[in-house]
Design a protein around this nucleic acid. Structure first.
Length: 831
RNA sequence: GCCGAGGUGGCGGAAUGGUAGACGCAGCGGACUCAAAAUCCGCCGGGAUCAAACCUGUGGGGGUUCGAGUCCCCCCCUCGGCACCA
């Protein structure tokens, strides 16, 4: 007989809702816990990744609630973005209609999973009462110079019809959403000065001890800090100079050329001062280079392109003249777009001079070795050593030389030491309709004019018609675009770009805390109580996107004074769940290996789906989907159901009195008592300390097996049995809440499990009567036998040595050493 | 190239330096049944054997240790991130 989850699951979902079991308020009497999950995009239906994410989160929330925590566990929808526009075109509807419908369906799905959210706190980012605060934050940043507009070469995705932030260009230079290669375009765009926080974003990674190492590493790579010297290089016989950046100022005497990026503004200056033929040549080469995509540049396999401009640069330290080249391996958007070429100590420069026949001057040698012969070098010597060919700096070890020469540059006014980051400012303009309008207008007289706070929200015109060709629908809304300038009252046009949707997800976790707050994005006292989130659960794909943006926003919000100044990080703990795999590959529509969570819930129930997911592998590792495994999980729940249901009469009659270990006489009773309490102990530690949910389930299966085979006879047996079933239901309830509630009710448990207390293991019941001891000879396992626990080493050894079997094994051999580990083993070393 | 995670039965996965393979899936044998399903019981890394003792086994090679899946060194493979970053 299989239990009727179709009746049980909705029954308990309704009961929880009616009882308001998961409503939560600020409460200083209990310790708080903020359990946060990455909110979904309302694509239409939950996928298996969501099911995994939210099964882990719901288990955590329920477990901590039972352990006396005041648990914040909210949910929302990240509801702006491209798919809604595409769907609107395809289905001939409006993004708002499509999004609203999807949210409705997904809420139903989340409820059918049995998730214990406080639904009163739902956040939907496409609603004006939410996105007005995006606009508000933008104005705050604009006022402080943290938001700015500039013309820059930016990443453009043809298929999405919009620009992208650097973080949204992934892999070999493709769009994070559609996978199509991006191209560079020069456009006026809005940026957020995230680089102002680069240092802190990097430094605070060390404080995020609750984050997985790989995410910290990914962020460190992404932010990419390097210390060096920025200095001036004069161009000979001109009044022109250019800036270069280097981390190896100690190699400055080794410059044999200077290289600049094709996009460097100085290219045009140099061209204009060249003869006509050379001018053409320079401009043509620069144009060809800058048109090449990132993929072409890197796919060349390191084969470098370059061209001599005919100009010479002067080395500031020794006045040496070296040629100035344009080179394709110099990037305009890192450092200064110009480098000092030191082929002896930089592999890229080395490859370059070997191709173009320029000189090599070694200025660092290995300690105790002579200066290498430049003609015989086969690669650049990039490691540290001792300076040479460097005048007064000869003989200094590399770190010392870097320090001394850097200092000298600052004294002489040639340059200054500074830190460079790989991180770029966050480009937030999107040429899309379905996003937060940027609250500025363009006035012919006053230029760019920000709106004032009282004009917010600037609402998206909902009557916009989404163009079939995928363009920005706002461009077709003249009534919306044409407005008046708040400064001069004259005619002005609204900004038609909208904000990157990642703005929405950068602070939504603050909004949950103060639903409906309309004087501020959230109430300070709510944030002070709940933040930072104790655990944030979601996919690793956001390591360098959302998780950096949210950290940046939190620091910015702290600097705005909306939260305390020492509250600098949003997420104390981070759990990056692994992917869901089927047939050896990540579940995806394009591979056709998806399993629909709805179907699993319909066929086996939410409890089974959750149990399988939590049991099949630890949360942070990938999970192999197995239909057979799901059946196994279902089989287990049926077993639990029968265990309690088939004996419900005896269980109800058994009463709730607990008999301590000391009151139990028989071995089987003591054994069962021990099993119950060691299970509680293990399961508690697995969940709380290790987040090893799979082994916690395994322990509960063992308890169930122990109970199933227990042959209860008298009243004591039944009281003990009831204790076992109660413990099983309590511990299993965060995993499979519905069936546990049902059985709890069936056996006449007090109240409902959703608000029950987590069981405590009794210390006496964890002690054992006998231990299994192993005999090893030379470290190899030979025998095992039982002994009373707690024997000291000598006692254990003498008892083992007395055994005839032991004597037989060591007979005729010389005993060199005997090692004893109490309650574990005796190892006899013989010759 | 740099950084990170990982490599254990047929499969998913367990093992504070101390009995490798918990728990589950699959498989095999049996009970129940007219039969099947469900359920229950037993077996289940490999080798050898009537059986037991035994030998062997955690990607490969060394090392530390009475004892290594676990610690150290070298190497191989898989996955993920970054990458002409000056």
């Amino acid at each position: 007989m299989a239990y009727d989850f179709r009746a049980i699951e909705p029954k308990w979902q309704k009961k929880w809702e009616e009882a308001g079991s998961f409503h939560v308020e600020t409460d200083d009497g209990r310790p708080k816990y903020y359990c946060l999950e990455m909110f979904p995009y309302p694509s239409g239906a939950l996928h298996m990744g969501h099911l995994r994410n939210y099964s882990i989160g719901d288990l955590t929330a329920r477990f901590l609630r039972m352990n006396g925590y005041n648990v914040m566990y909210p949910m929302g929808f990240d509801s702006f973005g491209m798919p809604a526009e595409n769907a609107a075109i395809k289905m001939k509807t409006h993004p708002a209609v499509w999004t609203t419908k999807n949210i409705g369906h997904m809420i139903d799905q989340l409820k059918s999973m049995g998730c214990s959210y406080d639904w009163r706190r739902i956040v939907k980012t496409f609603q004006p009462d939410y996105y007005r605060w995006n606009q508000w934050f933008f104005l705050q940043m604009l006022e402080r110079g943290l938001a700015y507009r500039k013309h820059a070469p930016v990443n453009w995705c043809e298929t999405c019809g919009t620009v992208l932030a650097n973080e949204q260009v992934i892999g070999d230079g493709v769009c994070w959403r559609c996978g199509v290669p991006v191209v560079k375009r020069g456009l006026d765009q809005w940026f957020l000065r995230i680089t102002d926080y680069a240092d802190e974003l990097l430094e605070y990674l060390d404080k995020l001890t609750g984050w997985p190492e790989r995410v910290l590493t990914m962020q460190r790579n992404w932010i990419g800090r390097s210390e060096g010297v920025r200095f001036n290089i004069e161009i000979a016989d001109t009044d022109i100079s250019l800036e270069a950046f280097t981390t190896r100022i100690d190699t400055i005497f080794g410059i044999t050329f200077v290289a600049i990026a094709a996009e460097h503004p100085i290219v045009n200056v140099l061209a204009s001062r060249s003869g006509e033929a050379k001018r053409e040549e320079i401009l043509d080469f620069a144009a060809r280079m800058s048109q090449r995509s990132a993929i072409e540049r890197t796919a060349a396999g390191g084969d470098k392109m370059g061209m001599d401009t005919g100009f010479e640069a002067i080395n500031p330290v020794n006045g040496a003249h070296v040629p100035v080249w344009i080179a394709d391996y110099i990037l305009m958007d890192y450092g200064t777009g110009a480098i000092m070429g030191v082929p002896a100590h930089d592999q890229r420069d080395f490859d370059f001079v070997r191709k173009f026949g320029l000189g090599v001057i070694p200025v660092v040698r290995r300690e105790g070795e002579p200066i290498p012969d430049p003609d015989r070098m086969t690669e650049a010597a990039e490691s540290d050593g001792v300076s040479c060919n460097s005048g007064e700096f000869d003989g200094l070890r590399t770190p010392v030389a870097i320090e001394r020469i850097g200092k000298r540059f600052e004294e002489k006014g040639w340059g200054k030491r500074e830190t460079q980051y790989r991180l770029r400012d966050w480009l937030i303009s999107r040429q899309r309709y379905w996003g937060t309008p940027i609250p500025v207008v363009y006035c012919d007289k006053c230029g760019i004019v920000p709106l004032s706070e009282k004009d917010l929200p600037v609402e998206l015109p909902l009557d916009a018609k989404i163009p079939e060709n995928g363009g920005n629908a706002l461009l077709g809304c003249p009534d919306w675009i044409n407005t008046t300038c708040p400064k001069c009252g004259g005619p002005a046009k609204r900004e038609t770009d909208t904000m990157d949707t990642f703005i929405c997800s950068s602070w939504y976790f603050f909004r949950y805390l103060s639903p409906g707050s309309d004087g501020a994005p959230f109430r300070r006292e709510d944030a002070e109580y709940w933040m930072p989130a104790d655990l944030y659960i979601g996919g690793i794909e956001h390591a360098c996107l959302h998780l950096i943006y949210a950290r940046f926003f939190t620091k910015m919000i702290s600097d705005l004074g909306l939260i305390p100044h020492d509250m600098r990080e949003p997420f104390t703990g981070l759990l990056t769940q692994g992917m869901v795999i089927k047939d050896g590959a990540k579940m995806s529509k394009s591979l056709g290996n998806v399993v629909d969570p709805d179907e699993i819930i319909k066929k086996y129930g939410a409890d089974t789906a959750r149990l399988f997911i939590l049991f099949a592998s630890p949360p942070d590792r990938s999970l192999d989907w197995s239909d057979k495994g799901v059946e196994g999980a279902n089989r287990f729940l049926n077993r639990v159901f029968r265990l309690a249901y088939d004996r419900s009469g005896q269980l109800r009659d058994a009463g709730k009195k607990r008999i301590p270990m000391g009151g139990l006489a028989s071995d089987s009773q003591r054994g069962l008592k021990r099993l119950i309490h060691s299970t509680i102990d293990r399961v508690t530690r697995d969940i709380r300390d290790e987040r090893q949910l799979n082994t916690a389930v395994a322990r509960l299966m063992e308890l169930c097996n122990g109970l199933v085979t227990y042959n209860a006879q008298d009243a004591t047996d039944w009281a003990l049995f009831r204790e076992g079933v109660e413990s099983l239901l309590l511990c299993l309830s965060p995993f499979c809440p519905h069936v546990c509630e049902e059985l709890w009710e069936t056996i006449g448990g007090d109240g409902i499990l959703a608000s029950a207390s987590w069981p405590k293991a009794e210390g006496d019941a964890l002690k054992v009567d006998r231990v299994s001891v192993v005999l090893q000879i030379n470290g190899k396992l030979r025998e095992q036998f039982e002994m009373p626990p707690g024997l000291d080493k000598d006692e254990l050894v003498s008892r083992v040595m007395e055994r005839e079997a032991t004597k037989a094994r060591v007979e005729g051999k010389e005993i060199i050493k005997v090692i004893a580990v109490p309650d574990k083993l005796v190892n006899i070393v013989v010759k």
